[in-house]
């Protein structure tokens, strides 16, 4: 079974994010880029399905600048068979709908029965992509899945998605879109052989014209990023406990208006 795994290259989780000189974006100097962790769950699950079935193909795809190839190379090192790099001036600063249209177009071309996303990218945490892509394709979608089993006839998938305190189980006809929640699996490390072999695997460049897409204006524009205001320092109320508590209650009521 062919499985397509869209991934996004994001700043490492340990990054101290700073707003850039152009306040619409972040300062990318010195950032270590990684594959968004939820996407790794999706890729791991795709690789496990392929291994379980003993055949198939796992295709990693990303929309992003030239450096995003590193993310695809990581996916290839982990075991993806080939990769598609959607890179075009038309997609620079694209909003989620534009990216979703690009992904939907490439999914139509590749025609995989299953698309596995991470539940959201950890940079902007929009989490819009799985549902948007499914909607554009007219495919069913289950988000935040914790487990999945493809039916023996390969026509449906039984997926359990996380809801408050329980698993909600769906049987979904293929083709469909799933998005992975943490806990779906434990992603493997790439092996050294995988790393050394990644360069021999194909990363195909795809332009907007290859997908028959014209540059259409973004529906969503980032106006500016603002840093969170610094946390005001705490206040220590001195004095005898009985007096201090009175002052605390007064302050909570009148200054903070918390009670």
């Amino acid at each position: 079974m062919k499985i397509l795994v869209p991934v996004k290259q994001v700043p490492d989780t340990a990054t101290q994010v700073k707003i850039g000189a152009d306040p619409k974006g972040i300062d990318t100097a010195g950032i270590t880029w990684i594959v968004s962790p939820y996407d790794e769950y999706a890729l791991e699950e795709a690789l496990r399905i392929k291994e379980k079935q003993g055949q198939g193909e796992v295709v990693a795809v990303t929309v992003g600048p030239e450096r995003a190839k590193e993310a695809l190379r990581s996916c290839l090192a982990m075991g993806a068979d080939r990769a598609l790099h959607l890179s075009d001036p038309a997609w620079e600063n694209a909003d989620s709908l534009t990216v979703a249209r690009a992904l939907a177009a490439v999914i139509k071309q590749e025609a995989p029965p299953l698309v596995l996303f991470g539940r959201q990218a950890i940079d902007d945490d929009m989490g819009a992509m799985p549902a948007q892509v499914a909607d554009l394709l007219g495919w069913p979608c289950a988000s935040w899945i914790m487990e999945e089993t493809i039916s023996e006839d390969g026509k449906s998938v039984r997926a359990g998605r996380q809801v408050e305190g329980a698993l909600e189980i769906f049987t979904i006809p293929l083709p469909c879109v799933l998005s992975a929640q943490k806990g779906l699996n434990e992603p493997r490390y790439p092996t050294l052989k995988g790393i050394m072999g990644a360069k021999k695997k194909e990363i195909k460049d795809v332009k907007a014209a290859d997908l028959g897409l014209a540059a259409d204006g973004a529906q969503l524009l980032v106006v500016a990023l603002e840093a969170l205001p610094p946390r005001p320092p705490g206040r220590i109320i001195p004095g005898e406990p009985a007096e201090a508590v009175k002052e605390l209650v007064r302050s909570l009521r009148e200054d903070a208006k918390a009670i």
Binding site: Y189, T191, L192, K193, I195, M196
Partner: peptide, 23 residues
């Protein structure tokens, strides 16, 4: 061993990872 750290510069043909001394 499974990751390939125990024979890093040994060619793949002999069970190694086929990387180099710098790696």
């Amino acid at each position: 061993g499974e990751l390939g750290l125990m024979g890093i510069a040994v060619p793949e043909a002999y069970g190694g990872s086929g990387a180099d001394t710098v790696a």
